[in-house]
Amino acid sequence: MSFDQHQKDGLTIGGRTVSSRLFLGTGRFPSPAVMQQALEQCGADVITFAVRRVNLDWVQDDAILQHLEDRGLTYLPNTSGATNAAEAVRIANLARAAGLGSWIKVEISANPRTLLPDPIETLKATELLTLAGFTVLPYTSDDPVLCKRLEEVGAAAVMPGGSPIGTGLGILNPYNIGLIVEEANVPIIVDAGLGSAVDAAQAAELGADGILVNTPIAKAKDPVAMAKAMAMAFEAGRLSRAAGRIPRKRYASASSTPEGVSEAYWAGGDPGSGSVSQERSAAGRADTGLQAGRGADLPVKVKGG
């Protein structure tokens, strides 16, 4: 697959195909203008936001949607603030009443310090909201069994966290993310905890279908550049995964053939005086020894640089 074809390979969730695999959270940006520029740079067409009380004292309060309507985006409101399934259902209904579709990110935190999702309530809410006709994308722990259970009760996509929200610790358990991807029949979106482009690429290499990013972009020194970097990194990671990475090895394998190494004029003889030359000669012999000895039992595939 060429890079261009690869990029056109859209992601379908709940019957809707989105072109960008980076979902952008809209919180904590320095200004709405920066958020919009970041949105343009990363090309996201799914954006998330939260439901909160209107500020009665300051109605100029900048509601996030004022800046985003008429862009043909897919809206993914979250249920943040909910601590149980019933509260999540209520917030989901409020969000749907705003008339911007019926996608919902279930987000139920029980612990204010870690904001880690409550697995039991998340499962309940996912089931209830699916029955109520929502397209449900639960934010969940990176537990392969739980992720499967969420899929079974109707999640349109499952969104395991890489690490706690806003920490930037990256993917703490890549093994689990890999297993979750292997088992899944719905898209897997790595949500929360990513820190920079490297984490985006890793998520993609592990097989994630997308990432949901907010803090690492919004709080980067240059959010607009980071938005682009993370979107590119995710696509790079996906292409890399498709390309097939090499197996990990314990020792080096040269990228050029050992034959035909040009020898120095003093090779095999006395190079003359001077300690520097003597050391060089010793190093040369050591290399030869490795290649002839321990190196021989390792598979050597020489493909060049």
Partner: peptide, 10 residues
């Protein structure tokens, strides 16, 4: 009465 709207969030 609760009046809510959307705010930035992830």
């Amino acid at each position: 009465l609760e009046l809510v709207h959307f705010v930035g969030g992830g």
